[in-house]
Amino acid sequence: MRGEAMKMTIFGARGSYPLSRRDQLRYGGNSTCIHFQTASGDDLILDGGSGIRLLGDEMMTRQFGSGQGRAYILVGHTHWDHILGYPFFAPFYRPGNRFVVVSAGQTNAHIREILSGQHEDMHFPVPFEDLSADLEYLTFRPGQHLALGGFKVETVQLNHPGITVGYRIEADGAVATVFTDTARVTKARLGDGMGGPDPDDGFSKEFKSRLAHCARGSNVLVHDSHFLEHEIVGRYHWGHSTFEDALEMAHLADVGTLVLFHHAPEHSDAVVDEKLAMARDLADGVSVEAACEGMTMELGRSRRPQSGEWQADVVDWGADGGQKGAL
């Protein structure tokens, strides 16, 4: 199962809410969840949409089944479609497992309150306190660098209501960057602290270059591609992109492969096929794929991995260390 390089597996590629439709069996109806594993077996999970239930079942066949697993969980943001699967994540219910939940939280709300809110007795039968795994919390501000065991992670705030974080994840010399739930910045500024909502040319330029810097030279860029161009008109403030926006970022950041992500629940497999074909027509040297449940990519070496000095702002040393917290 372990290879030479970091491996990325998609467990949920759907945006907004999970949905079961017979015309969506190939791309899948589970909401967002992506799993990363280093060559040496370190686990990192990005988002806990409904796809995390299936990831949890897979993890229970490994050391997590005997309560000896540890993994990082990166929180992109806390809208329902990105968190509603956590209560159904089996490894949380096995004593001995350890998770570090890494998050920028939301304005005035700690991630623990947000996750435990899903377990209030009116809404879910199992209290949050009954999760028998050990959950720890590591918080950061968007823009900070994180050293998480075998992963080097960079963060950037995306253009979406509240606080939403894009992540650059590097391990084994390979880089994957995930920007999901981000809107066309030339049309709206949506995130907390972005000074929005009206467009601002200076801000747009600076924002795009900040994102491009974060994604620079990635092997893979996983990017929001929720809307088709005729659908985004009038919905610029909904917080999502088109495949054209995703391609623009892929070109700016000089990435190897663009993976279209966060498919709209209204889009059948045929529509996603069409979106992918149109994106490939305009790809101009970038390889383009559409994320589907079960898709695994072994990431080769990045054209521009970190070299020389790289300063972490927040560190968790992983299994062998124990020291953690802000430096």
Binding site: P18, L19, S20, N30, R53, E293
Partner: peptide, 15 residues
């Protein structure tokens, strides 16, 4: 409990 879309549940549905 939770939505379970996929090929294994395609006939009865997962909503």
């Amino acid at each position: 409990s939770v939505a379970s879309p996929g090929r294994a549940t395609a006939r009865y549905g997962g909503n």
